[in-house]
Each structure stands twice: as structure tokens, then as C-alpha cells.
Nucleic acid binder design. Sequence first.
DNA 1: TCATATCCCACGAAAACCCATTGTATCCCC
DNA 2: GGGGATACAATGGGTTTTCGTGGGATATGA
Lengths: 164, 164
Amino acid sequence: MAALEHLFQGSALNAVDAKGRVSIPAFLRGVIERRGDARTIVLAKHESFPCLTAYDPAYAAFKHAKLERLNEKEETGPDAAIEYQQRNLMAFAATEEVPYDSSGRILVPPMMRMKGKLGDLALFLGAGETFQIWNPELLLGDDRIPDDLKDIARFRLNERGAAR
Amino acid sequence: MAALEHLFQGSALNAVDAKGRVSIPAFLRGVIERRGDARTIVLAKHESFPCLTAYDPAYAAFKHAKLERLNEKEETGPDAAIEYQQRNLMAFAATEEVPYDSSGRILVPPMMRMKGKLGDLALFLGAGETFQIWNPELLLGDDRIPDDLKDIARFRLNERGAAR
DNA sequence: TCATATCCCACGAAAACCCATTGTATCCCC
DNA sequence: GGGGATACAATGGGTTTTCGTGGGATATGA
């Protein structure tokens, strides 16, 4: 699977400006452009954390293909069919694809801004196959997040001069 | 696994300059470039010592694949999913990948400089699959470190003319 | 018309790049 | 084996490029 040769890693804290724009950190864009040649990211609500998951279109296609294969094998009864429909909708209806401009910025769609509870700071976290976009305050308040990771969030906030 | 045919070994003490740059010892770079063809290293806080762990991207990918396989097998309940997410974040969000230039130097990211408590001297220690980067003073003050190893650190410090 | 999105330019800080110097280990030839 | 030349490693410093960010101007559509 060529799509996964390059993994998202690292962290950064960027500003969401008055127009709702955010810079995607350059080191993440590098991975996106090495995986495919798109200058676009796909956004979705994370399935277990109060944040957004993001990835490149090539990865979306890869995930879709995997789901299809799974479905063809385990075709058993009506429940399976419903589950398939649900997953399919989540994968496509509940996501948005947004392009980034020449300076590497996206315009966060209002719905995603709401779903991810983003304020005027966006914390980017590499997560291997995908990356996450957090409201840093929510991350600090989540007790499922390891302390070492919260330290990173605090460091990024300090770096920027913000209190906390 | 081809990635582990070559192991990191040896020690060296290099300066961290005013810009935060350090030379990666040539004998470590040799291993990195034999394992893959990248000219980058991945930095992370060591999980039990007050220092940094470092390795090449190929090794990171190898570790990731191992984690994925583990996860697909032991898929049991929601707790397992959270644990997986936590490990994944620690492996990718809490690490940084940095390239080294033609003269073999990296720029130590400020966060890593803090996490590893590095001053203006960096002690490199080969550790087989990975290598470590220490503040030499912290190594000398750690009672879990064997005396023979501390002797090496003292020798490297003397070599450089530094006191201690 | 107003609000919203896209494009463009501009700036400051930081990082990447290039070149120059030193010291040390290696090689070669006498 | 000694001595000089050579190659490479580590390091300092200056210059250029990139990145994140703000703001204005221009298009687009309700």
C-alpha cells in the first residue's frame, strides 16, 4: 500500500483567523503531497475524541477500497447490509473535502468548525495514517489524553505567548 | 526485517550551537542511510530516562506496522480502541521528524530541546535499534546509569577540555 | 446589496542553505 | 617509520528562502 509509506507526525499550533482560515502545517502538507499529488484535505469528526480527523484524498480512496472488500466477504443477513450503509454514509456524507491555497491555508467549513468545537487556535497532531485538529482547551480537559501529550499542548500554547 | 540489520553503536559528544544546531555523529548517520535512504531522524522523549530517543523513519514505519497488526488482532471492546488511540498519538504526535543537512546537522526543535533537557552539549549513545541523546550532566547524575557508562561520558567531556 | 469565498500581496520570524575554518584521522610516498 | 598531503568531520557565521499570518481587493452567489 503506497498510500501509507508516508506517515503524519509532529505537532503544531496555528491560528484560526477572523475569516475562518488556518494554515495546514508545512510538514503535514509535505506528507499529503508525497502520498498523492492533491492539494486537498478531507475533514471528519473524530470517532472517539472531540476533535477533527483529517487526511488526504488518496487515503480516503484507500479506506473505501478496504471497506468494500470487507463488505463483499462478510455479506451475512440484513444487519450487515445496514451496517455497511451506515459506514458508507459516515465515510462520505459526514466528511468534507477542502482545498488549500498556495500559501497552504484552508477555510474551515462552518459545520466542521462546530463539530470540532474549534475556537481561534487549532492544534494539529500527527497520528500516522491521519492527523487530528483539536481545540487545545478541549484536549487539556480530556482525561483520556496522556499527560505527556498535554505537556506538548501546553508547550505549544506557551510558545505562542498564550497563557495556560 | 531489513531495517534492523544495521545497529546503532558507539558514543560521541557534540556541541549544540547558538541556533540550536547539532551534528549527528557520522557513524550514526551511516547506519541511518544504510537502513533506508532518508536523511532524516525521528526524535522522541525517552520513555524512562530524561533524554531523547532517536531513530530513522524506516524504523518508525516498522514500529507502526507492528502496532497495526497488534490492533487488528486484539479488537476487544471500547477500552481497546481508546488504548490504541493513545498509543498512536504518543507514537506520532509526541515525536518530530527532522532532516539533517549536507553537513550532517539537525536543528533541534525547541520542544525536544526542552523534553530532553539539552544544554549546549549533546551526548550521543548508540542503543542498537535506536540511539539516545543526553544532556551529559543528567546522565552523570542518574543513579540508574552504570558507572562504566558514566566513565565514557566523563572521558568524552575531558576530551573536549570541559571540566568534570 | 450584502455576505461570503477566492485571490493577491506584504511583512516578520524562523528555518534551510551555502561557504569558510579548524582539527583530526587517513593515506601515500620517500 | 616518519612526514607531508589529503579527505572528512564538526562547527561558526552570513545569506536566502520558506512559513505562518494579516489585510485588502476582487469575484461569486443568495
